[in-house]
Write a protein that binds this DNA or RNA. Structure first.
Lengths: 230, 230
DNA sequence: AAGGCAAGAAGTGCATGCAATTGCCCACTA
DNA sequence: TAGTGGGCAATTGCATGCACTTCTTGCCTT
């Protein structure tokens, strides 16, 4: 092979490909149903087909790609029903995380959650959607961690990554930013009170609203975003 | 290769291996921490190392085996904390499934759930642990399906399979059989009433008890069962 | 003219070989 | 004698090649 990377034998070539391809799927660069040719991918990443196959296997296990025996792999295409079921699951998972967080977060965790949440208020005032999206992700990640349950954390993160392509544009709806912040506020105050039930309910409602907001974009057959192919 | 299987090119060699190895892990034939040598496995299944690697990749993604870069794969070893977190997650997931089942099961599903549950009473009277374990698995599977949420179904089945090695011996505790049936009874009646909250609570309590029962066996470093190696 | 069949092309699935990395053992030094 | 460094064996990671499956296209039959 020509042009071997200087990082020969880095030991994580496959992992890099999983992330690279996964990101492209999750961010909508690759559209559902798109064909993933092993040979082309091998050429594109300048490796042989073997690591490509391994990467595709991982992505398949993650549910991001679909593999038909002897018929190649395509970007996983999710039906409306399955998408709805994932959003519903997400709401339940977040509810659990919020409930556990209310019951188990250390005082340090509660403090930093509150501080970051208050900081994000500035993003809302400025209407900085990109920045708020970052804070938003961070916020939810704190809830997952605060549950102090590694397995629920994994399940939640996994589900979130599968939903990522359908959530990207939610903040483009007018007024969504401010409402999102208010919903976070409800969750935070419930957690600060140690009120697990209220935190759970607030989190579930929050995700349900995101679900409805995202349904608009899901309706037209996935993400229209497509700036680059591979 | 000598002795090629008559089912050449069955197209699902890897899948069979995933199931075969996964079963051996899940049933305790292979103990946590046990080394999984690619070459030995390839010889044992009479295939080359390539499909073995792919199978190990899948098992790794499922969390059943742990892969260290350049240092081979071992049967995943779960810490006490992680095990506890999985049981707790399982309780929450089952609670969700039971709640949804109470709200969404069709009348046909409710009917067959009830019938099967009543039929399993005979197994309890006879003390037929093996048979009851089958009914038990079937019972819970019905709950997962009855939730009418494919994604929650997947998450729950996945978690259950990871917990399988630690649940096998629970029915060997004296009186566990009858208690398990009574707990199922609570879940069933709540579902028949359409009482989601009660069904959820009953399911959560049920799993919590299983968790405590299983903790006894987990305490001595995993499953002592070991009848065959590969 | 339409439908079915067969041959070819494209692409996946697996086998095998080679190179690199890791762990281990033993010699060598302080 | 204990600790360290270098070489060696074992094993993984990746490349490449061949066999098989599937889809397509064109021809033949009715």
């Amino acid at each position: 092979m020509s042009g071997k990377r200087n990082l020969i034998r880095s030991g994580k070539t496959v992992d890099q490909m999983v992330r690279a391809i996964g990101d492209r799927i999750v961010t909508g660069y690759l559209r559902p149903g798109e064909k993933l040719d092993e040979t082309s991918l091998a050429a594109r990443f300048d490796v042989s087909r073997t690591p490509v196959r391994e990467a595709l296997g991982h992505l398949s296990a993650m549910g991001l790609v679909e593999r038909r025996p002897n018929r190649g792999a395509i970007v996983a295409v999710v039906t409306q029903e399955h998408l709805a079921s994932m959003f519903e699951s997400m709401a339940e998972l977040e509810a659990i995380c919020a409930r556990f967080s209310a019951e188990r977060m250390t005082s340090a965790e509660r403090r930093s959650l509150e501080i970051e949440h208050q900081a994000s208020a500035r993003m809302v005032q400025l209407g900085a959607e990109e920045d708020y999206e970052y804070f938003n992700t961070e916020f939810h990640t704190r809830l997952y961690r605060g549950a102090h349950n590694p397995h629920i954390h994994d399940l939640t993160v996994m589900t979130r990554s599968r939903l990522a392509p359908f959530r990207r544009a939610q903040f483009m709806l007018p007024g969504r930013l401010a409402k999102s912040w208010q919903e976070h506020e409800l969750i935070v105050t419930a957690i600060m009170r140690g009120d697990g039930a209220a935190a759970g309910k607030a989190a579930r409602d929050h995700v349900s609203i995101v679900s409805e907001a995202s349904a608009v974009f899901a309706a037209d057959g996935g993400k229209p975003v497509r700036r680059d192919v591979a």
